[in-house]
Design a protein around this nucleic acid. Structure first.
Length: 565
RNA sequence: GCGCCCGUAGCUCAAUUGGAUAGAGCGUUAGCCUCCGGAGCUAAAGGUUACAGGUUCGAUUCCUGUCGGGCGCACCA
């Protein structure tokens, strides 16, 4: 892989040039320049260490270039440019061999850390990604859908880059929200069977409450209503059913979770109490106004937080701390949590409380998944959370399909608001970027079928006389394919899955250009085989990129009912 | 009032963590199907990166302030 060759090369070059230090190598940043004239790879290392080395940037760059170990099979040119950039240019032989190497690496399987695009950057670092974690009080909404797409993609990206990452879903099945659910369903049920019962203030609204009430057995429900703890029965019955809905929808959507952890487990196991005592033992608690507080201000929070209310019940914070402590105890070295936009106020308190418990300051990383505005006909789709009327994950899957939904959610950076154009997503034509990428994949599959009918397959070689990739469109495409591992590495490192769809759209565009300029299957057998391998390598890269996004890569695509018009 | 996110082409968004001449899609305009899938391609037009300062070799990116939009600021989650 090019990235590791460059990294190793600079370690060697720094030593040979008498400029070695661990810290300088750590500052090495390799990038693929957007301007082709600046080569295929570039680094500003000389600019960064010039001051420290006491020499002008260009002199440092010249020294590094002179000392850089040459591999003519990989790079034909290493140049110093501008104020001191070092630019690398691929050798023709490297580009010619690239398709074969990509095909040898094969399909990407993130969980197995295998395939073209994977590289062991992290040596199995245990990372946990907690995402969605919706309350079990209703169907999953569009922000949940966005979080599901992003979280699942992050898990795959992390595994592809040598982390050992698991997805996890935290179920808030204790506390006031699910109690309120129980009260709401109990009231709806009572309504159904003709027993007067007040609907709770701020109770949950929406059609699904009636569905739940209908599903619950009239016999058991009536008995439960009569008992003292009727609401607990309704709460438990309802949240299990809602959890089943959520699990089913997420599985269908392709978001996988290694574990579903319940808040109630933490209470039952004594983890919450143990956390409280651990905080107390560390001198981080105090009593005031009848409540128990944790000294988070000592660790960067703007106020201390209540962990046990004057009623004796814990606030949300305590089980949250217990949960994250449990993650650490299970061997995860890092936790990436995806939270909704209305929860950013919880970041500082939780981080501070975890430190109060002795966890590393950077153990927890929180990504905010920003809100989604659904647009239809250029207008926002009206949703009323109060009335329980909103578009659900299931609605989205039925309307535009899981592939398209995931592609759209992953197109934008996670922490920016997203305007989701439903009309565009519904369109099955070239304006829809999801189809654009999938179409390129299907088109290549079609070319391969066409070639196979003529006895040509990418695995065949014409022999020593086989031509290289000479046409500009071929070279542009090969260079684009070579960039894929770096997109995966950068996307994982920056937690930015949106780089994948952007790259795939570019790759598809470059392929289409190649297709128009270069006839793949022709009378020239040797040339046909070389181009067929390039096309197949492109198909594999598109497949691998889509796989990281959780989007299918179809062999064929047919439009729905358009011939009729 | 305080905190977080955002402000880039008519619209929706990128810009490789501070890099070299700010790029795509949609929309607009003008073209390309005897040939491997036209769900495709080519070209044109479109910008004082909200505004004003600052930091340095270099700023869309970092800092300060102003303006505008969103979300928080509980002994709910």
């Amino acid at each position: 892989m090019v990235w590791s060759a460059l990294t190793d090369g600079f370690a060697e070059a720094l030593k040979r040039a008498g400029l070695w230090s661990e810290g300088r190598l750590a500052r090495l940043e390799l990038a693929i320049p957007r301007e082709p004239a600046h080569g295929d790879w570039t680094t500003n290392l000389a600019l960064l260490i010039a001051r420290d080395a006491g020499r002008p940037p260009r002199a440092v760059a010249d020294a590094l270039v002179a000392a850089f170990p040459r591999d003519p099979e990989m790079f034909s040119g290493i140049d110093v440019a501008g104020p001191g950039f070092i630019n690398f240019r691929y050798a023709q032989a490297f580009l010619d061999r690239l398709p074969s190497r990509i095909l040898a690496d094969g399909p990407l399987e993130a969980a197995a850390r295998r395939g073209f695009g994977c590289f062991d950057h992290a040596h199995g670092l245990r990372v946990q990604v907690e995402y969605v974690s919706a309350n079990p009080t209703g169907p999953l909404n569009v922000v949940n859908a966005r979080a599901a797409a992003v979280g699942a993609a992050l898990v795959r990206l992390l595994n592809a880059t040598g982390h050992s990452a698991d997805g996890e879903f935290y179920v808030n099945d204790a506390g006031t929200q699910v109690d309120l659910l129980g009260q709401s369903v109990a009231a709806r049920f009572a309504e159904r069977v003709g027993i007067p019962r007040a609907f709770p203030e701020n109770g949950y609204q929406g059609e699904y409450l009636h569905d739940l009430a209908r599903e619950l057995s009239e016999r058991e429900g009536r008995a439960a209503l009569a008992g003292d703890n009727g609401e607990a029965w309704f709460r438990n019955q309802s949240l299990e059913r809602i959890l089943d809905w959520q699990r089913g929808d997420l599985a269908e959507y392709g978001a996988e979770f290694a574990r579903w952890v319940r808040e109630s487990e933490l209470h039952a196991r004594g983890d919450v109490d143990a956390t409280l005592e651990a905080l107390r033992a560390r001198g981080m608690l105090y009593e005031a106004e009848g409540a128990t507080w944790v000294r988070t201000t000592q660790l960067g929070d703007d106020k201390d937080r209540v962990v046990v209310r004057s009623s004796g019940l814990p606030t949300y914070l305590l089980p949250d701390v217990a949960y994250h402590h449990d993650k650490r105890a299970r061997g995860f070295r890092h936790s990436i949590d995806l939270w909704g936009p209305d929860h950013h106020g919880r970041i500082l308190p939780l981080k501070a409380a975890l430190q109060a418990l002795g966890l590393e300051p950077d153990f927890l990383e929180v990504l905010i998944v920003q809100q989604v505005n659904l647009l239809s006909g250029g207008q926002p789709v009206k949703m009323s959370k109060r009335a329980g009327e909103f578009i659900t994950l299931r609605d989205l899957m039925e309307d535009i399909g899981a592939d398209c939904a995931k592609f759209f959610f992953l197109m934008r950076s996670t922490n920016a608001h997203l305007d989701f154009d439903l009309d565009l997503a519904r369109r099955q034509n070239d304006e829809n970027p999801a189809y654009y990428v999938q179409y390129a994949h299907a088109r290549i599959a079609s070319i391969l079928r066409f070639a196979a009918e003529r006895g040509l397959a990418p695995a065949q070689f014409a022999g020593p006389g086989e031509p290289g990739l000479a046409a500009p469109a071929e070279q542009t495409l090969a260079r684009k394919l070579a960039a894929f591992p770096e997109v995966v590495r950068g996307g994982a490192l920056a937690r930015e899955p949106h780089r994948l769809p952007a790259y795939l759209q570019e790759t598809a565009a470059v392929f289409h250009r190649f297709y128009h300029e270069c006839r793949v299957v022709s009378e020239d057998r040797a040339l046909s085989l070389a181009r067929l391998r390039l096309a197949e390598a492109t198909r594999l890269v598109l497949h691998n990129g889509l796989a990281l996004m959780g989007v299918t890569a179809p062999e064929r695509m047919e439009r729905e009912a358009e011939a009729a018009t």
